[in-house]
């Protein structure tokens, strides 16, 4: 690329950035805060119910709550509701574990037509895969650091 082109591209980028519509950050944050909060509150209610009814240990209860929340995320994805929530809530429904369930179930549903092996199974982790790889890697690194210090 010549210097002229590079300059032209640079000034065009600046011009475009000045015209790009800006998202309403406050409104988006409020949506994310409240929807994320509701999801977490539901999680807490499930946790308390399981703990008081079935008398599991605290750790077991956490694991079961996680399972329930994953089921809810997957179920709402399956009936076509989670994408509508996600459109409004953004990170509010993306970050909780229900969002993680959504990122696995959505491609699994989408690629069912390509078969259960190369479609569902192969594409299932196309969105969640990077989260798993870097999530697990980070936890291993932090574990090592914790062990040393």
């Amino acid at each position: 690329m010549s210097k002229n082109q590079a300059n032209r591209n640079k000034s065009y980028e600046k011009y475009v950035n000045s015209k790009v519509p800006k998202p309403n950050i406050l409104k988006n944050c409020l949506w994310a805060f409240f929807v994320g909060g509701i999801i977490c509150t539901i999680g807490q209610v499930v946790h308390n119910l399981i703990e008081s009814i079935y008398k599991y240990t605290h750790l077991d209860t956490s694991n079961i709550t996680t399972l329930v929340m994953i089921f809810l995320g997957a179920f709402l994805t399956g009936i076509g509701v989670y994408d509508i929530i996600g459109k409004k809530a953004g990170a509010g429904s993306l970050i909780p574990i229900t969002g993680f369930a959504n990122s696995i179930v959505a491609p699994a549903m989408e690629f069912k037509r390509e078969g259960y092996v190369m479609g569902v199974a192969a594409k299932m982790f196309s969105l969640a895969g990077p989260v798993l790889v870097y999530g697990i890697s980070t936890s291993v690194i932090i574990g090592i650091l914790y062990y040393i210090f």
């Binding site: 790009v20 519509p21 800006k22 998202p23 994805t77 399956g78 076509g80 989670y82 994408d83 929530i85 996600g86 459109k87 809530a89 953004g90 429904s93 993306l94 969002g99 959504n102 990122s103 179930v105 959505a106 491609p107 549903m109 989408e110 690629f111 969105l127």
Partner: peptide, 11 residues
């Protein structure tokens, strides 16, 4: 993205 994925489309 897959249709049911709960992401936001940029403006």
């Amino acid at each position: 993205f897959p249709l049911e994925s709960g992401n936001q489309r940029p403006l």
